[in-house]
Nucleic acid binder design. Structure first.
Length: 505
RNA sequence: GGCGCAAUCGAAUAGUGGUUAAUUCAGCUGGCUCUCAAUCAGCAAACGGGGGUUCAAUUCCCCCUUGCGCCA
């Protein structure tokens, strides 16, 4: 760490067809950790050759996701280095040079077969129970034949001529994998519209960008032998390869929208800390080999090692992410917590900027009470709404407590007691409430429970006395009075049901 | 269908040719407490199956099964 190593160059190469999802983020993270650990270079390359599905919005979404996670790139969009451009659609001329080389050496050839023809021949082969390998119909076309076909207006694709030998992939994670080139077929490297295919563009870019290690999801394993053949046809030494296991949904299928939030930006919106998300996804398919789970980014950089990456896919678990977030949240100072929380409070219209010093101090108190309870900022707003608005909902379970006999009297007495308090702090409030319980021969909780519900609408939350202190004397009395006015003499008033009394985690 | 990858508690991971197979999340029980969270103490819970190799296999090899991925 810290020592610059110019030979180590890795890249993250997403297609801008959507937001940055959890799986992509983890691939980016591992590459980034590797680069930072060894003092290498982390490149971000946008593979936008699929023009129909690539959008500038998606590019921005990916950049935003990366930035939020703190995965800064050394070369790439907005940060041009000497190996740019970093958008594939801006690199078409570069691919052409390599294609010409392959065409000249006979390692690649033009193919005029139409999609329809190919589909038909493929169907036939499959019916015969044979693998669908390109039949090399166009391999030996004469120059005249080619000219004729071009004259007819046919646009050729370019195929790579597969050599007849075993292809060995020596993977840093999976070990040695062998593939039979006969089964690989002469695949297309340039489509008839002149756009390079994924495998070709990626290889040329990796060559030109001097990528030393290709680390990507193991869904790319079957692309690797094809890419290796391209390197070999070009006579260029191979980079190293490392294929990392994928992240699956709880039903062990590929993570997708029906599993809930898959975009990293959604986690930002839900009020997760980027360092918690990073910490969690780092542990999906990797471990330090120790019992330590909570890592700062810096610690992750220090501990990261390819050898500790597991070989099998991992299932994304929201509960554990929540736990990681809660742990990181607890480690935040109250000041920092407030700072991070403010945007969420503004969005909920609970506060407005600028903040007075008094208000900020008050916020810190609220935070100190809620810190261990909320697992993310959205949950903070949900569990702690009553700190910020008088217009909170009384949950169904909570309303039942108010319906118990005698509650009205108790709350009336409580107001009188509270009015007697001069110095409004937790200690004095507790003292008064206990005193009242003693005088009326009640248990503490007989006062505390209905009071909590009246003041917060909930049955759960921080210590009542702390809560009362933070809320302030006036607001306490106002809220209690409001509840009393709704209660009939014997407390049989039924509270309106909340729209949604259930908490959603 | 072809090719490939994988397999330890419900989940994520440790781990070893001989271990009481460990930790964290989730679950459960209890302590603390005005409730919840936090915290503390404890419980439960796994080596997919079959063959080898070996004195000994969860660990090494092969097959099967299952899951996943890519291509079609």
């Amino acid at each position: 760490m810290g020592i610059e190593n110019k030979n180590i160059r890795v890249r993250f190469a997403p297609s801008p067809t959507g937001y940055l999802h959890i799986g992509g983020a983890r691939t980016a993270l591992f590459n980034w950790l590797y680069a930072r650990h060894y003092g290498g270079t982390f490149i971000l390359r946008i593979e936008d050759t699929d023009r129909a599905r690539s959008t500038p919005e998606a590019v921005n979404a990916i950049l935003d996701g990366m930035k939020w996670l703190g995965l800064d790139w050394d070369e790439g969009p907005e940060k041009d280095g000497e190996y740019g451009p970093y958008f594939q659609t801006e690199r078409l001329d570069l691919y052409k040079k390599f294609i010409d080389r392959l065409l000249e050496s006979g390692e690649a050839y033009y193919c005029f077969c139409s999609a329809e023809e190919l589909a038909e021949r493929r169907k036939k082969k499959l019916a015969e129970g044979r693998p669908s390998i390109y039949d090399r119909k166009c391999l030996n076309l004469s120059d005249n034949e080619k000219k004729q076909l071009i004259k007819e207006g046919k646009k050729p694709a370019i195929r790579l001529k597969m050599p007849d030998r075993q292809i060995v992939v020596d993977d840093l994670i999976k070990g040695i994998m062998e593939f039979d080139s006969k089964l690989l077929s002469d695949f297309v490297i340039i489509k008839s519209d002149g756009i390079p295919t994924y495998n070709f563009a990626a290889v040329v870019d990796d060559i030109l960008m001097k990528v030393s290690l290709v680390m990507r999801g193991d869904d790319h394993i079957s692309n690797t032998p094809k890419q290796i053949v391209i390197y070999q046809a070009l006579g260029i030494p191979l980079p190293e390869f490392a294929h990392i296991p994928m992240i699956m949904g709880p039903d062990n299928t590929r993570l997708s929208k029906r599993h809930g939030a898959t975009s990293v930006i959604e986690y930002q919106k839900m009020g997760f800390l980027p360092e918690a998300v990073v910490n969690y996804i780092a542990h999906l398919g990797w471990s330090s080999g120790t019992n330590q789970e909570i890592f700062t980014i810096k610690e992750l950089v220090e501990s990261f090692a390819l050898e500790k990456i597991s070989h099998h896919s991992a299932i994304f678990n929201m509960e554990k992410l929540n736990w990681f977030n809660n742990e990181h949240l607890k480690r935040l100072s109250d000041e920092k917590y407030v700072e991070m929380l403010i945007p969420f409070l503004i969005e909920a219209r609970y506060i407005e900027l600028p903040l007075s010093e008094k208000k900020e101090k008050w916020l810190r108190k609220v935070v100190s009470l809620m810190k261990s309870r909320a697992r993310n900022f959205k949950q903070f707003l949900e569990y702690g709404d009553y700190f910020f608005t008088d217009d909170f909902i009384i949950e169904e379970e909570a309303a039942k407590i108010l319906e118990q006999t005698g509650v009205k009297d108790i709350l009336e007495q409580l107001i009188n007691k509270l009015k007697e308090i001069d110095k409004w702090d937790e200690e004095n409030i507790e003292c008064k409430v206990r005193e009242m319980a003693h005088q009326l021969n009640l248990k503490g909780k007989q006062i505390i429970h209905p009071a909590r519900v009246s003041l917060s609408g909930k049955t759960v939350g921080p210590s009542l006395f702390a809560l009362m202190e933070v809320l302030g004397k006036e607001r306490n009395i106002k809220r209690l009075e409001k509840i009393i006015s709704k209660l009939s003499k014997n407390s049989e008033y039924t509270f309106p049901k909340p729209d949604n009394g259930k908490r959603v985690n």
